[in-house]
Design a protein around this nucleic acid. Sequence first.
DNA 1: CCATATATGTTGGATAAGCAACAGATTTGA
DNA 2: TCAAATCTGTTGCTTATCCAACATATATGG
Lengths: 199, 199
Amino acid sequence: MEMIKENTFRHVLDDDGVDPRVLRTRKLIVDGFHELLVEKDFQAISVRDITDRATINRATFYAHFVDKYALFDYVIARSFHELLRGRLTHRCGLSTENLRTLLLTVRDYLSGHLAHCTPDNQQNIHPYVIRQVHAQVHEFLVHWFKPIANDLDAAAALISWAVMGAGIHYSEDQTLEMDVEQMVTVLTQGLDGIGINLD
Amino acid sequence: MEMIKENTFRHVLDDDGVDPRVLRTRKLIVDGFHELLVEKDFQAISVRDITDRATINRATFYAHFVDKYALFDYVIARSFHELLRGRLTHRCGLSTENLRTLLLTVRDYLSGHLAHCTPDNQQNIHPYVIRQVHAQVHEFLVHWFKPIANDLDAAAALISWAVMGAGIHYSEDQTLEMDVEQMVTVLTQGLDGIGINLD
DNA sequence: CCATATATGTTGGATAAGCAACAGATTTGA
DNA sequence: TCAAATCTGTTGCTTATCCAACATATATGG
């Protein structure tokens, strides 16, 4: 029980070949944490609360996560990742449809998160959520860019933050209508400008 | 992982002091087994089916139960035990009220079991159910008798089977009305005959 | 203010769960 | 009928989880 934390963030969803006990324990922790998040504020949740709820030993928790903040990051990253994967039709490819899905998923995930949380949690946690969601968006973009060219780091950074910006904007004010097609056009035209043609 | 099976049947509900991993694994096995029971016949369920559903290793199953029949016995004994404990108001005492509760609980448990199962399972499993439920009823009676006198084995055997007989009879034909008070009277009078006065 | 909890991480040794491989029994189906 | 496949228990070794104990930090309250 040494290298469990090691793989936790390489790829958030590579459960293949992992010891079944590790997968079970992770799920118990995550489920217990989710239960607690709707009951009380993040700041008020102790590691002991989590392990009691998960029916695992406290030492085992620390074998999986360095602290509750790492657990939180993991939960956000994984749930967003799963939501996005479930919505993508063209798996692993750069296309206008996938860009559209990306924009909509970020917005929906963020507004869903705001809807679930207590007001206090909204204030304190939102920045962490954004950071983790962005990390995932960025990872997807890099993955999509890779077959096209290697040195597109700047483009990935720019577009990932553009997508996040749109998502944040529209998730915070639900009265606004999101003009997805216009945004997709901006992104595709922009990419076209640096020699990347979609579809 | 040697003596797990050891304590399994001493008292069906003494979870105190047992290793948490054992309790979790047991629960996973029992839950998976329950799921499978409503899907297919008991005879068609393999140990591998159970362990796959429970997400545990097959070898771990054999550390807990000698075979699927032992698991079945355990499930019956435990669920009946829990149902009865939940209904008893006068905990651990011999009284007309507890005798009444015993009669009704046996009938309800048996008819509930018949209602859940596939016709095939009803035929094949019913004898095992009766055997295990009787073992529990007998254990409760012995426990209630103990403060009164020591050599009441015959009385416990007789009354436990009388209770079972009533339960079986009325669970198999739901149209009959169970005259509980008459039966309780029979039992209390009978006990009175050997010098045991209730209430 | 200080004493008494309570929370956080960490460690070493004990124990349950995982796994692969095995032999033998039973089922399947060609 | 016979061979291939599947199921059943069992075993030795590996690995993850448990637990108790510890040092430290942060409340909590009298």
